[in-house]
Simulated assay, not measured.
Amino acid sequence: MAEHAVVLGGEVTALDWDTEFTSLYDRCNDQMRFTAFLMCGNWHEAEDVLQAAFLKLYLAGPKLASHSYIEGYLQQIVVRTFLAERRKVRWRREKLTDSPPESLVDSPDTEDGIVVWEALSKMPARQRAVLVLRYWNDMSIDDVATALNCSTGTVKSQTSKGLRTLREKLGPGFGQSRLEV
């Protein structure tokens, strides 16, 4: 059982942190889970990344509870956890299991969305993270640089490379009208 400290000079107690953390989890879980899914390509890995990120945030403790940037910090932890996991398992592309692969029910529901999602899932992790943060989460270049702990120049170059890679994977005719006149 956690000890509950007394509020001294504006410090947050462990009980206050538990309440704030629960509120943050309720507010951010779905958005962060989907962000992790877009980067990972499957819900199971996204859940693992999200769980690790929330644990890291919780362990950072009450010193963060009163800060206005806590949601941004959580997003930064999610991205960095994803990238760290990718570095650990870079050598392994597929893992054999006894269960069938996930169905497309978990992926975007339009045909174009499915095609983009599949192309995105085959991209290098850093490019994928940049594209998800820039275009799905609508983050600025500076915010992405902060989340990825890199320079704005790196974000710009990874965005450029990522868009080029995505276009190559989608092919030249993607996005044009599919109706024949």
Rank of each mutant, 00 (worst) to 15 (best):
E11I: 08
E11D: 12
V12W: 06
A14F: 03
A14H: 10
A14Q: 15
D16Q: 15
W17Q: 11
D18Q: 14
T19A: 15
F21Y: 15
F21R: 12
F21D: 12
T22V: 09
T22Y: 04
L24I: 12
D26M: 14
R27I: 15
N29A: 11
Q31H: 05
Q31F: 07
Q31K: 11
Q31R: 14
R33E: 05
R33H: 11
L38P: 00
C40K: 06
G41D: 07
G41P: 07
G41C: 07
N42S: 09
E45A: 06
A46E: 01
D48P: 00
D48C: 01
V49H: 01
L50D: 02
A52T: 07
A52E: 11
A53T: 02
F54P: 09
L55G: 05
L57N: 07
Y58A: 10
Y58D: 05
Y58T: 09
Y58H: 14
A60F: 08
P62R: 14
K63L: 13
A65T: 08
S66A: 14
S66G: 15
S68K: 14
Y69R: 11
I70N: 06
Y73W: 12
I77A: 09
I77T: 09
V78E: 04
V79A: 14
R80H: 06
R80E: 12
R80M: 14
F82D: 07
R86M: 13
R90D: 13
R92L: 15
R92G: 01
R92C: 14
R93M: 08
E94M: 04
E94C: 01
T97G: 06
D98G: 11
S99Q: 06
P100W: 02
P100E: 08
S103H: 06
V105P: 00
V105H: 05
V105G: 00
S107D: 07
P108D: 05
P108N: 04
D109L: 10
D109K: 13
D112T: 04
